[in-house]
């Protein structure tokens, strides 16, 4: 039986080559351009934002940056500085690191390596995902009710203190630490585990000698990002209560007793200044404080990104 080829749409063996050659794909190019354009808007926003902040802050940055960083809260805009905010934020970050990281890493190890497939385990997993979505201001309520005013706990934290604020922020970043650590552990090839078990290592020995070292860069990336997040969070601290009026600077940077004392923090200082009527506070000082905070946060973020890229390249290569 002969197969009859019916010409479709005027195609003939003679002109089929011609029709396969593409016309320029205008629609496609336009689409690609629109996508790229949208992406550029997001990046453009970042540029405009940084430009606005730096130019608003310029009168401070160009004339008294050193005094601004070492100065204390003061009633005059021309004299006010952020050293106490830096110190408070430093202590908050340290407390977050001490509390949230061990807890988060241990929890992630349990969930990835030990947890039996029970209802309880999956409940814990779901619970962590939901906690990650709880608005930060709600964590502030936790901080206020438990860490600041909680019966018995307030004596330990000293009320509205870096300890109370730090514990609140630790609770806030804990789910993120757990989730990123879980991801890092999941990326460990199972051959590594099996090899460890094969030579008679116990589970914990495999975890500490093989899994954690392998997952360490991923874990560190996640923890750096969480510290950056904790440093910039203002809403929970508004509820926990920081001082933005006046606080003298007498205890030194490394006098640990101040974790139970009244404190100031960068994000709440910025908030309070941005809402002041006086222009020197509302625009110049607030912007200058933002420059310092953003520089710190971007530094942490870049470190995390670099770390990740380096190890990804290493693994791939």
């Amino acid at each position: 039986m002969a197969i009859a080829i019916k010409p479709v749409g005027g195609l003939t063996p003679a002109n089929i080559g011609e029709s396969l050659r593409r016309k320029p794909d205008l629609k496609g190019a336009l689409f690609q351009f629109v996508m790229l354009f949208s992406l550029s808007i997001s990046i453009g926003v970042l540029v405009v934002l940084l430009y606005t902040v730096v130019s608003d802050a310029w009168p401070v940055l160009s004339t008294r940056l050193g005094d601004f960083v070492t100065g204390t809260l003061a009633p005059d805009a021309g004299r006010a500085g952020i050293s106490q905010g830096l110190k408070g934020t430093f202590y908050l970050c340290v407390i977050v690191a001490i509390v949230a990281f061990p807890l988060g890493i241990a929890a992630a190890i349990y969930l990835e390596e030990y947890a039996p497939r029970t209802r309880l385990s999956s409940f814990i997993e779901v619970n962590i995902r939901n906690l990650a979505g709880v608005p930060s201001v709600v964590y502030g309520i936790l901080g206020l009710a438990i860490f600041v005013n909680g019966w018995g706990i307030s004596a330990l934290t000293g009320g509205r203190s870096p300890l109370a604020g730090g514990l609140t922020l630790a609770a806030l970043v804990l789910p993120v630490v757990i989730i990123t650590t879980q991801e890092a552990i999941r990326a460990v090839p199972s051959a590594l585990r099996e090899a460890g078990f094969g030579v008679g290592a116990t589970k914990w020995e495999v975890i500490k000698d093989h899994i954690l070292p392998y997952a360490a860069p991923g874990i560190l990336t996640g923890t750096l990002l969480s510290i950056a997040r904790a440093a910039g969070e203002a809403a929970p601290l508004l509820l926990v209560g920081t001082i933005t009026g006046f606080i003298s600077n007498s205890p030194g940077w490394f006098d640990v007793r101040q974790v139970q004392d009244k404190f100031a923090a960068m994000p709440t200082i910025i908030t309070s200044w941005a809402k002041q009527p006086e222009e020197g506070f509302r625009v110049e000082n607030a912007a200058a404080a933002i420059v310092v905070l953003v520089a710190f946060v971007i530094l942490l973020n870049s470190a995390a990104i670099l770390l990740r890229n380096r190890f990804e390249a290493k693994r791939a290569g």
Binding site: A145, G150, G158
Partner: peptide, 15 residues
Amino acid sequence: ESASADGSAADGGSS
């Protein structure tokens, strides 16, 4: 909690 929550009566402070 009701006693301490609103007045922050337990707000000890270590000053």
